[in-house]
C-alpha cells in the first residue's frame, strides 16, 4: 500500500503533540501566562502573544462538527480507500478547539470502515490512536460505544 503523507515528528512547534500521541495521549497547547488553550499548536499564544506554552491533556471526547466524503481521484495513498469520510471534531471540554480526523469503526480499522449513512453533525466520538510510522501515531475517532451505527 502506498504510504500517506505524514508530518515530521521532530518539528519544534509540534513535537510535543506527536510525542504524546505515541503514548496514546491527546494534548493541546496551553499558554503559561493566560491559560488560553489552542490547536493547532504554534510558537506563541494567539490570545496574549506570550512565548511560553505547555502541553495539557485533553479527554479525547468530542463530537463531529462537520464532515465530507472523499471520492477519487485523489492521492495514491488514499485512492484505494475511496469513498472515505473526513471529519472535523470539536472537543467536548473545549468546544472552541477543533481537529481534523478520520472516523473508524474500531481501533486500527480502515478509514473507510464507517458508512457515510452513519455520520451526522453532532455524532459523539471517542479517540483512538493508530501508529502509522515509527515516529507518527495518528489520533483517530470512533463513534461512541453508546451510539449505534444504524443508518
Amino acid at each position: 500500500m502506498t504510504a500517506i503523507p505524514l508530518p515530521y515528528g521532530d518539528d519544534p512547534d509540534t513535537k510535543g503533540f506527536w510525542d504524546a500521541t505515541r503514548d496514546k495521549r491527546l494534548v493541546v497547547q496551553r499558554c503559561k501566562a493566560c491559560s488560553h488553550c489552542q490547536f493547532p499548536p504554534h510558537p506563541f499564544c494567539a490570545q496574549c502573544a506570550h512565548d511560553e506554552t505547555e502541553w495539557v491533556e485533553a479527554a479525547g471526547r468530542g463530537q463531529v462538527w462537520s464532515f465530507g466524503i472523499a471520492h477519487g481521484p485523489t492521492l495514491p495513498g488514499f485512492q484505494n480507500l475511496v469513498p472515505y469520510p473526513m471529519i472535523v471534531v470539536e472537543l467536548e471540554e473545549r468546544p472552541h478547539i477543533r481537529m481534523v480526523g478520520s472516523l473508524v469503526a474500531a481501533p486500527d480499522a480502515s478509514i473507510n470502515s464507517v458508512p457515510a449513512s452513519a455520520i451526522r453533525i453532532g455524532l459523539p466520538v471517542d479517540i483512538t490512536f493508530t501508529a502509522v510510522s515509527d515516529d507518527i501515531t495518528l489520533p483517530r475517532w470512533m463513534p461512541r460505544a453508546s451510539e449505534s451505527l444504524k443508518p
Binding site: 504510504a3 500517506i4 503523507p5 505524514l6 508530518p7 515530521y8 518539528d11 512547534d13 509540534t14 493547532p40 504554534h42 472523499a70 485523489t74 492521492l75 488514499f78 480507500l81 472515505y84 473526513m86 481537529m99 481534523v100 480526523g101 478520520s102 478509514i111 502509522v132 507518527i136 495518528l138 483517530r140
Partner: peptide, 19 residues
C-alpha cells in the same frame, strides 16, 4: 505532496485524508 509534509497548514489536514 511529498511523503513528509512541510508546514503547519498541511500537517493538520493531510494525514487524515483531506487532500
Amino acid at each position: 505532496l511529498e511523503q513528509r509534509i512541510q508546514g503547519s497548514r498541511d500537517t493538520w489536514l493531510r494525514p487524515w485524508g483531506i487532500i
